[in-house]
């Protein structure tokens, strides 16, 4: 099977979208854990945020391709005719737009990982960096929950 047609096969696309999102969320939970441990190993923070950014970007591409090519034509009409049209009108609409906040937030977290200990402490950034990492993970989880609602509405009407 040709690689592009395999990757764009609908269940594979959804699987990739979800899997990369989970890795992205986990990466920023790792970042948060590193900060919460009291120490600050910059190499680990850099890896966590680079993995998180790449994963969220790949999730964006897989989910975006599915949304633009397949969802509007095949899935949206089913949801709108079902018993929970709000799953599209609220959950999908909110999900697709709130997702656009993630990459700028994640790149900001990556840049913070490059600041050395002296400057980091002088600028009193620990608490804000932890809240930022937690927010990225929380937004990812909220978007994931909305994705579950959308899938459930499409499956069971």
């Amino acid at each position: 099977m040709e690689i592009f047609s395999f990757l764009t096969y609908k269940p594979v696309l959804i699987g990739l979208h979800l899997a990369f999102a989970i890795v992205g969320i986990d990466a920023f939970l790792w970042y948060l854990g590193e900060m919460a441990s009291g120490g600050r190993k910059r190499a680990r923070l850099k890896w966590a945020s680079i993995i998180g950014i790449i994963s969220f970007a790949l999730s964006w591409m897989a989910g975006g391709y599915y949304y633009v090519v397949t969802y509007g034509k095949l899935v949206k009409p089913i949801i709108l005719k079902g018993t929970a049209p709000w799953a599209h009108a609220v959950a999908m609409e909110a999900k697709e737009h709130i997702f656009l906040f993630i990459i700028p937030l994640a790149i900001t977290a990556l840049i913070l990982a490059f600041i050395n200990e002296e400057e980091f402490n002088k600028n009193n950034l620990r608490r804000a960096a932890m809240i930022l990492a937690g927010l990225i993970a929380a937004l990812g989880l909220a978007i994931g929950a909305m994705g579950f609602i959308i899938s459930a509405a499409a499956r069971w009407g």
Binding site: W86, V90, F101
Partner: peptide, 28 residues
């Protein structure tokens, strides 16, 4: 300034998420 910038970003991202969600609830 950096700490204030981050706190402002966090508050705006939270408010923006809530604004989008509530807008689509209202719109529906």
């Amino acid at each position: 300034a950096v700490r204030r910038g981050l706190i402002f970003l966090i508050l705006v991202a939270l408010a923006g998420s809530l604004a989008i969600f509530l807008f689509f609830v209202w719109h529906y």
